[in-house]
Nucleic acid binder design. Structure first.
Length: 581
RNA sequence: GCGCCUGUAGCUCAGUUGGAUAGAGCACCCGCCUUCUAAGCGGACGGUCACUGGUUCGAAUCCAGUCAGGCGCGCCA
């Protein structure tokens, strides 16, 4: 049980005794340390309903509160009940955490299977900065869900089938340099893709040819299929290199093409069951009018008033769309993988699509907890959306390389003792970590303007700051003359810096489950920052190695627990920690 | 036209779902390396939470309206 749950349970007992009926209320971490460690506004809420004086009620509750050995409680302001945890209680808790592999984190997801759909780039196009959000947020959520006990299936639903392949095949037939493809394939793919885009803009007949190539491909034309296969393979190799560098792993890469042979049957089934019908030659899902107009994703208000806003699952020319593929994918994930939850980490502009998708899936009888985890857009300098098609975006690889280069410069400057491969390995960890943390420390819904300095900052609230605190801890243990067993150490907390460190260490298990309530890895980022700040203050204020034997042992144990918690927190954000930097 | 997202310190952003005197980092200013790594620590400065009303013990947070920016609304994904 976490400290917070312990307080809630004791408060519930006191409330029940005071009011004569079973009552519970929430306890939260205090907003400000001056008010103690935890607080509850139960008295104010309950007094309102009962029209009594909140402070008087709070006093009654406190009179019934049994906090022996754990905390003290008092009333403040309009009727808050503030809890101050006793240092001895923190000491006992931290000592127990050292012996707990889970660091106090409850396994709230046990027995549940979740499919997380993230990254999902289009093949034959390089990943640019716009892909970073889905990839990094999705990976972090996967790690967190796994640690909380969920069975996680990370699925990279790559865009390997669709309209763009008409253009790709055209470009292979007209522009491809085989030699360049053999030596360095990705830049060559980029080059020819840009050429065909430009050509199609100039000459509408090129676009027609592209469409014809697509129809041939979808009809199973052997030549086009061979081009398609080779293109996928080359692209996947290129993508894999980026994922390796980012330390992002998938359990499956089931792209759009995997669901091809299910689409025709799916459309037939929707027609038979009356969920979809023909309109202007296309097969569409319309509203079933079971919802109010304002909440209905298949209705939209335009100048003329409310009109249909259907999801098309088969074009007039017979082609299928991504709504079709996504429906087939939901069916597969539920039937084959027994998914209880499906989480899509996809930009917020697509939310209408997901509302329609989830609604249609429900009408089809596919039930589960489906969530669209949206995120804001990355904007260019003009505050406009970065365009996917223009090809002039900053590439993801370039960002990573620049990050590592900047980190290498700082290492050379700050710690010239580090040389060669060791320095390069640290630069990689620091640079990539900085990029990831810049993304994860922010609320996912916020749009932001891309900026090198912002994404690659190495000072202040950044990954290197966190990594540096770990390095400082390891440095203490390196200077230790004999091995230290933290599991048997006694912990005494006297200095304010020690107590504050313990306060945060105990909170790890409280913070982690809340992240999945609204899919906000930035809560974890905030937590590790606070923990690192607390450690740095402790490091300045409290000598470890030079302290007397009992204090030394207690502080070493605190350092050990801090090191593990920090490392685990960063691991869950997908960020590695070096031992030196 | 309708819908969704956003508007908080000079800049970049948090803000635990309605709580107490709104917080960090960057930048600027003042201190701290003969002691476990100064990528650090301590302090100062900095606010009409876009605006106007409303709801209540209490609002950056909820409701209504206004202004500004981004995005979406039938055969792309």
């Amino acid at each position: 049980m976490t400290l917070l749950q312990e307080l809630e349970s004791r408060l519930a007992a006191a409330l029940t005794a005071t009011l004569g009926e079973s009552t519970t209320a929430a306890v939260t971490a205090a907003a400000d340390l001056r008010f103690g460690d935890y607080q509850s506004n139960a008295a104010m809420v309950l007094a309102k309903a009962r029209k009594t004086n909140p402070r008087a009620l709070a006093q009654e509750i406190i009179d019934h509160l049994a906090l022996d050995g754990l905390a003290t409680a008092d009333i403040a302001g309009p009727g808050f009940i503030n809890f101050r945890i006793l240092p001895t209680a923190y000491a006992a808790r931290t000592a127990a955490l050292i012996r707990d592999e889970r660091l106090g984190v409850p396994a709230t997801g046990t027995g549940k299977t979740v499919v997380i759909d993230f990254s999902a780039p289009n093949v034959a196009k390089p990943m640019h900065v716009g892909h970073i959000r889905s990839t990094i947020i999705g990976d972090s959520l996967s790690r967190i869900a796994r640690f909380l006990g969920f069975t996680v299936i990370a699925d990279n639903h790559i865009g390997d089938w669709g309209t763009q392949f008409g253009m790709i095949i055209y470009s292979w037939n007209h522009f491809l340099d085989e030699a360049a493809l053999a030596t360095d394939p990705i830049p060559e793919l980029v080059r020819v893709y840009r050429l065909v885009n430009a050509a199609a803009k100039e000459d509408p007949s090129v676009l027609e040819t592209c469409k014809a190539e697509l129809v041939k491909l979808q009809a199973g034309d052997a030549t086009n299929l061979a081009i398609w296969k080779q293109c996928i393979e080359v692209s996947q190799n290129g993508l894999q290199k980026i994922y390796d560098r980012l330390d992002v792993k998938f359990d499956h890469w089931l792209g759009e093409s995997y669901y091809n042979d299910r689409l025709a049957g799916l459309v037939d089934e929707f027609l038979e069951r009356g969920i979809a019908r023909e309109s202007s030659g296309a097969i569409c899902i319309f509203s079933d009018h079971s919802k109010p107009l304002e909440e209905d994703p298949f209705m939209v208000h335009k100048e003329q008033g409310w009109t249909d806003n259907p999801a098309i699952i088969r074009k007039a020319d017979g082609g299928f769309l991504y709504a079709t593929t996504d429906l087939a994918t939901i069916q597969f994930r539920i039937d084959e993988w027994k998914a209880d939850h499906i989480w899509y980490v996809v930009g917020v502009p697509q939310q209408l699509h997901f509302r329609q998708l989830f609604d249609a899936a429900a009408r089809w009888g596919k039930t589960g907890d489906f969530k669209h985890i949206g995120f804001g857009s990355i904007l260019g300098d003009d505050r406009k959306l970065m365009k996917t098609r223009s090809g002039d975006n900053v590439g993801l690889i370039e960002v990573l390389e620049e990050a590592v280069e900047r980190a290498a410069k700082v290492i050379a400057d700050k710690n010239p003792d580090l040389q060669g491969e060791e320095a390069a390995a640290i630069a990689e960890i620091v640079g990539i970590g900085a990029v990831k943390f810049a993304e994860l420390s922010q609320n996912r819904l916020t749009d932001y303007v891309f900026s090198w300095d912002r994404m690659l900052a190495l000072q202040g609230d950044t990954a290197p700051y966190l990594q540096y605190s770990h390095v400082r801890i390891r440095s203490i243990f390196r200077k230790l003359d004999a091995p230290f067993d933290a599991t048997t150490a006694e912990i005494h907390l006297n200095e304010e810096a020690e107590i504050h460190l313990a306060r945060l260490l105990v909170r790890f298990g409280e913070v982690l489950p809340t992240i999945l309530e609204d899919f906000r890895p930035n809560l974890l980022a905030n937590f590790v920052l606070e923990l690192a700040r607390a450690f740095h203050s402790f490091f300045e204020a409290c000598p470890v190695l030079k302290a007397d034997e009992s204090t030394r042992s207690s502080r070493l144990a605190l350092c050990e627990l801090t090191s593990r918690t920090l490392k685990q927190g960063l691991y869950l954000l997908g960020i590695k920690v070096p031992d030196r930097m």
